[in-house]
Nucleic acid binder design. Structure first.
Length: 439
RNA sequence: GCCCCGAUAGUAUAGUCCGGUCUAGAAUACUGGCCUGUCGAGUCAGUGACCCGGGUUCAAAUCCCGGUCGGGGCGCCA
């Protein structure tokens, strides 16, 4: 039987005299001599346990004297409403069980007021996670993903699982992690992209994949991880890339709405407010983008991809003009994109390739894929790729591939931007960066 | 991959520019006292640190070189 009868948050001043058992960590000890307070913390909050000499049994007071912060205890007792206790209630204990004693004092403070550096906190992530403001971020992230899934399920999307191990480094130019796979060379995927396409061609039609991707780029930035998770969506029988962006913006809306509706307390803990974005999201496109950038004194040669400064300029431009933190960038130069994207037939320089930008940071990329076998083969050739190594992917296009498209939206990045967090490692439970592989 | 900055007790910092006054300071945590309404409790006492290697110098936390790790910018991207 589960030890606790109540989470701390479930106990209110209306529970007078009710007998409860709470269980959790010793958050704070305040010893006033003949009066002692134990602040017990669990996932949902905190409650004060009060011991008075002459009122509380002597052996309980003796036991309380041995407690240290972060010991794990269960406390049975009566709820006592009182104005002088936090949230107007406290527990008068009749029994205290020590479930686990700390072996040594904690290296980073859980209850204290000294904020450790992120790197130190990540070394002791387990302790860090016990801080309510850190826990809140992950509760919000969970709801964000839940909101996405609810939207997708309503929209008839099926969840699928795609492989993380790849027999060939394909896709774009980013670096992949090699893996020892018996006597073959294998790689960790950069994106579940190609298998999603195959699933749609296989007739699954509307699917999504929630899972990790890896990039072997030694990026030292507050927005990159070597391992990140994405919500990757793919759908068939689209008319053009706008059928994809309409899904994406609703998915984002759904996820943010879920957070707004169900994470009021967590948002308060971290001192943030969220706003459900209005759809449709504004769009800027190539080649018009060159003109917009020029107005802001930024020159990008016609036909070239933009850089991060441009992204910031466009974000500012859209924010002023459309009052939106979100916008799509469409029709990227084909030369900057992978072989599988669909070009605009009449203007083959540009691709039906779409990024979603949120508060100036790229959240996703996607768009319409090329589904015509001949075109795909042309593009494989144009990108200088080997027909043989791509055959596993291109063959199925011979046997009836519907027009399709999709996107992969970064979960850590979306959480980060939504909550105005400065570093993506804050929104990753156990982040993997070039130097950090533990814990 | 390129560029800039940093590393002092468990944690977070002062000191570094202008080498000696640093047997390295205040905080918090920790250890031991006192205290019957605390809630960043208060109060008294105590333990505890200059990233590693090399160099310059009478003398290095402080200056120089290399390494490792960390923060950030660009590139790449989610």
């Amino acid at each position: 039987m589960i030890i606790r009868t109540h989470y701390t948050s479930q106990i209110t001043k209306d529970d007078a005299e009710k007998e409860v058992t709470v269980a959790g960590w010793v958050h704070k000890l305040r010893d006033l001599g003949n009066l002692k307070f134990i602040v017990l913390r669990d996932r949902e909050g905190q409650i004060q346990v009060t011991l008075k000499k002459g009122v509380t049994a002597a052996e309980l007071i003796e036991l309380a004297n041995t407690l240290r912060e972060e010991d794990v205890i269960a406390v049975k007792g009566a709820v006592k409403p009182t104005k002088i206790a936090p949230k107007g209630r406290e527990i008068v204990p009749t029994k205290i069980d020590i479930l686990s004693k700390i072996v040594s004092s904690v290296p980073v403070s859980v209850s204290g007021n000294i904020e450790s550096n992120l790197d130190t906190r990540l070394d002791f992530r387990v302790l860090d996670l016990r801080r309510p403001e850190v826990l809140a971020v992950f509760k919000i992230q969970s709801k964000l993903v839940e909101g996405m899934q609810e939207y997708l399920k309503r929209g008839g999307f099926q969840q699928i699982f795609t492989p993380c191990l790849m027999g060939a480094a394909s896709e774009s130019g980013s670096e992949v992690f090699p893996v020892v796979y018996f006597n073959k060379s294998a790689f960790l995927r950069q994106d579940p992209q190609l298998h999603r396409q195959l699933a749609v061609i296989g007739g699954m039609d509307r699917i999504y994949d929630l899972g990790p991707s890896w990039r072997a780029e030694p990026s030292h930035t507050p927005r990159h991880l070597c391992e990140h998770r994405g919500c990757a969506v793919e759908l068939g029988f689209i008319t053009d890339e706008y059928d994809v962006t309409r899904v994406e913006e609703k998915l984002v809306q759904g996820s943010v709405r879920k957070v707004k509706e169900e994470c009021g307390e967590e948002l308060e803990i971290i001192g943030r407010e969220v706003e459900v974005p209005k759809a449709p999201f504004p769009e800027v496109r190539f080649p018009e983008i060159y003109g917009i950038l020029k107005e802001f004194g930024k020159k990008i040669p016609f036909g070239e991809d933009y850089d991060r400064e441009s992204e910031a300029i466009l974000a500012k431009y859209v924010k002023e003009r459309h009052k939106s933190d979100f916008f799509f960038v469409n029709r990227f130069p084909f030369k900057a994109k992978p072989f599988y994207v669909m070009r605009v037939d009449e203007e083959p320089q540009w691709a039906r390739s779409v990024d979603l930008v949120y508060k100036g940071l790229e959240m996703s990329s996607g768009g319409q894929r090329e589904h015509r076998y001949e075109k795909i083969m042309e593009q494989v050739k144009e990108k200088g790729m080997s027909f043989v190594s791509m055959q596993w992917f291109t063959e199925p296009f011979k046997y009836g591939a519907p027009p399709h498209g999709g996107f992969n939206i970064g979960i850590e990045r979306l959480t980060m931007q939504l909550l105005d967090v400065e570093n993506i490692r804050e929104t990753t439970l156990f982040p993997r960066t070039p130097e950090r592989l533990l814990p």
